[in-house]
């Protein structure tokens, strides 16, 4: 009988899992829209971006398995860790809400991930650098897609403006965590494997602000920032997401699917 795994979180394994979990959870959230989007073109686009993210997660989990050296597969990490074992930022697990909220969440994350993966292309870890090269191209598209929508919703109707402004206010406190680094990550930065996230923050803010300005939205000031996801202290939403994601494997454990 299979059960929840305990990962040997060496700095490299932990680092890789954090990025993998971000991608999987956000990809899963986007996939929840499939068949329910405001227009068919968005059904296609959201599914496409979900596929990009799930693809990134798969590469990263596979690499985490290699780095851990215990023969674990992508599915072991995805299906056999509980909320406390997941390492994603809180932003990506936030519920879809309306289209404005989903788009804004995507916008904030994509702008981060675009800069992040571009910087990671210079990682001394060849596998992470290769994953970065592929992911950066994908995230550059997500940035464009989400940005176009932020502008349309912000500068569209009074209703769309109110909705995206509310989403911005609600989600902004989750953006600080994107740039959090602990001692284990800092050691990887020193080794040339990871990138210094604090160095990306001003660029991120400027890029985000440029779009928000065009969308007639006010970039919030950085106040209190929520965090905890990187150490497995999540919002209440993640447990429900995982219950759904892991359901079949947990019902019939040990099977090949």
């Amino acid at each position: 009988m299979a059960k929840t795994i305990r990962v040997n979180e060496t700095p490299l394994v932990l680092y890789t899992l954090r990025r993998a979990d971000d991608a999987l959870i956000l990809g899963h959230r986007l996939s929840e829209w499939c068949g329910h989007a405001p227009m068919m073109e968005e059904d296609m686009a959201l599914a496409n971006m979900a596929l990009d993210l799930i693809g990134q997660a798969r590469s990263l989990y596979t690499y985490a398995g290699e780095a851990e050296g215990g023969g674990r597969t992508e599915d072991d990490f995805a299906y056999w860790r509980d909320e406390r074992g997941y390492r994603n930022v809180l932003l990506v697990e936030q519920q879809n809400g309306d289209f404005a909220r989903t788009i804004l969440r995507q916008f904030l994350y994509a702008h981060f991930a675009d800069l992040y993966w571009r910087a990671m292309m210079a990682s001394k870890d060849a596998t992470l650098a290769a994953i970065a090269a592929k992911s950066e191209k994908e995230m550059a598209y997500h940035v464009r897609h989400a940005g176009e929508w932020v502008i349309r919703l912000g500068d569209g109707t009074a209703e769309s403006h109110a909705r995206i402004a509310a989403a911005l206010e609600d989600l902004w406190p989750y953006t600080g965590e994107l740039f959090e680094m602990d001692a284990s990550e800092k050691a990887l930065v020193d080794a040339g494997i990871a990138v210094d996230l604090s160095a990306l923050r001003e660029r991120w803010r400027a890029n985000v602000k440029a779009v928000l300005d065009e969308a007639t939205l006010t970039t919030p000031a950085d106040g209190w920032m929520q965090k905890g996801g990187r150490t497995g202290i999540h919002s209440e939403h993640l447990g429900h997401l995982l219950a759904e994601l892991q359901h079949v494997q947990h019902t019939i454990p040990g099977a090949v699917w």
């Binding site: 596929l51 997660a57 992508e74 599915d75 995805a78 994601l245």
Partner: peptide, 17 residues
Amino acid sequence: TRAPSLRRKAALLAKVQ
């Protein structure tokens, strides 16, 4: 959202797309 492996999830999502 309930596909039993990441490979199946990606394939199903691509199919529905």
